[in-house]
């Protein structure tokens, strides 16, 4: 099958690849661009692990025809941190223990970034809605929701070293 030349912006750089007709964006990013941060979960739009931003909006890379991103800006988790500095969302995820096995985390972070980029002060319901298409098997979602809300309210605070975050759930007792 003839391949098509495809150029698009990948995080902070321009990339050019040759894709097969019908190739999806997830395969293109992972196999041709070499960006392994979007994860393959189900390949049919059911889990959100492959979430990336296209011109700022959250999209499922596995359901996006690669050729449709020609000339557009694709953001992935690989471009989220700024050199050695983690993005406030990444730091909030760490502080709130919002990852266990970590497989959903790239998609969660990108879905959350899409939300915070257009709505810096979301309500809890808006956060829930933003990650409603992303499956997490480990955390019970609560720590993820807390992390996104903390990143929103903390703004850039997260860039200045780890802080102690009091646990919202635990009331430890010893007897």
């Amino acid at each position: 099958m003839a391949k098509t030349a495809l150029q698009f912006r990948h995080n902070s750089r321009d990339v050019a690849v040759f894709v097969d007709g019908g190739a999806n964006l997830l395969t293109t990013l992972r196999e041709l661009v070499g960006d392994m941060t979007p994860k393959f979960g189900c390949g049919q739009g059911g889990c959100g692990a492959c979430t990336v931003l296209i011109d700022g909006d959250a999209h499922l890379a596995c359901l996006t025809l690669a050729e449709t991103v020609a000339g557009r800006a694709v953001e992935t988790l690989d471009g989220l941190k700024d050199g050695p500095n983690l993005h406030p969302l990444q730091r909030a995820f760490m502080e709130h223990f919002a990852a266990q096995c970590g497989y959903c985390t790239p998609g969660m972070l990108m879905a959350a970034k899409a939300l915070l980029d257009r709505n810096p002060s979301p309500t809890r319901d808006e956060v829930v809605n933003a990650i409603a298409g992303n499956i997490c098997r480990c955390t019970g979602y609560e720590p993820i929701i807390d992390a996104v809300l903390a990143a929103a309210s903390g703004g850039m605070r997260g860039l200045h070293g780890p802080e102690h975050v009091p646990s919202p759930h635990m009331s430890p007792r010893t007897f």
Partner: peptide, 10 residues
């Protein structure tokens, strides 16, 4: 805490 919150979800 992480185990208890996530496990209760399961």
């Amino acid at each position: 805490e992480q185990q208890l919150v996530g496990g209760a979800w399961m």
